[in-house]
């Protein structure tokens, strides 16, 4: 069954929240798909970066359920190529921040095994904690 969405104050408020956090005008997006086509991690994402953009443009809060923003490595390939000069990485970061500021962490340090901690470079742990926990 096709999903029905509403375009109302609530969706606008969500779009504005994201825009306030990232300083980007998401309405500029042409939906050309350059971000998705060049994304090195797109195959591990459940929705493409362009679809994530579209959901933000439409104020669809269910974008927060998507894995895409957590998989984003902030490599900035999309940002340097976007023909509208949108900073797509910053938008993904804004979505992560909305989650993290509600203290919904993606990483529980206690669940990492001792072996893994020994294996992983320390910088990777620090980076992961900064990106994935509040």
């Amino acid at each position: 069954m096709a999903k029905k969405i509403k375009l109302d104050d609530k969706t606008q408020a969500f779009q504005k929240l994201v825009e306030d956090l990232c300083g980007q005008n998401t309405a500029k997006c042409d939906q050309c798909g350059t971000c998705s086509g060049g994304c090195p991690f797109v195959e591990d994402m459940d929705i493409t970066p362009a679809e994530l953009m579209r959901k933000v443009m439409l104020g669809q809060e269910d974008v927060l359920e998507s894995e895409t923003m957590w998989i984003c490595a902030t490599c900035n390939t999309c940002t340097v190529r976007c023909p509208r000069k949108l900073d797509v990485s910053k938008i993904a970061e804004a979505l992560r921040q909305i989650r993290l500021r509600n203290e919904i962490d993606q990483l529980d340090i206690g669940k990492i095994s001792r072996e893994e901690i020994k294996e992983l470079p320390q910088i990777a742990l620090i980076a992961a904690l900064r990106k994935l926990s509040s």
């Binding site: 050309c32 798909g33 998705s36 060049g38 797109v42 362009a50």
Partner: peptide, 10 residues
């Protein structure tokens, strides 16, 4: 490499 933005597939 491209996205088919209508079907959301790479």
């Amino acid at each position: 490499k491209a996205e088919d933005t209508l079907s959301r597939q790479i």
